[in-house]
């Protein structure tokens, strides 16, 4: 029960975390590691399609890096993505404040 509720709650935060992290270009697996190290639990089979969707929506841009032995696709936040991130961060702060108030009142 708690697990499915937690998943529901976390679903939207991965987008925000990606938009925040990809200020510097990153490729898929490295981003996954960074996110998991930072405590944002996400699976590869969710993250990789998500990156492409955000790219399709114009929030990320991508570039292939073929300089190293293994070609990798690097993603970074587009100007539009930065704007969306600012809005999402504000929303997130409001939510944190609201929930903090609510949980305090009910104690």
């Amino acid at each position: 029960m708690i697990l499915s509720q937690t998943q529901e709650l976390r679903r939207g935060t991965v987008v925000l975390a990606c938009l925040a992290l990809l200020e510097r270009p990153q490729y898929g697996y490295a981003l996954l590691e960074t996110l998991n190290d930072a405590g944002v639990a996400v699976d590869g089979n969710t993250l990789y399609p998500l990156l492409r969707r955000l790219e399709k929506q114009g929030l990320l841009s991508s570039e292939w890096n073929t300089e190293e032995s293994r070609p990798r696709k690097f993603y970074r936040v587009s100007p539009e993505g930065s704007r969306v991130r600012t809005g999402l961060v504000r929303e997130w702060q409001d939510l944190v404040d609201s929930i903090a108030r609510l949980t305090q009142e009910n104690r």
Partner: peptide
């Protein structure tokens, strides 16, 4: 191409 790289990584 991306999937191949990611799996290898």
């Amino acid at each position: 191409a991306e999937l191949r790289g990611t799996i290898a990584d």
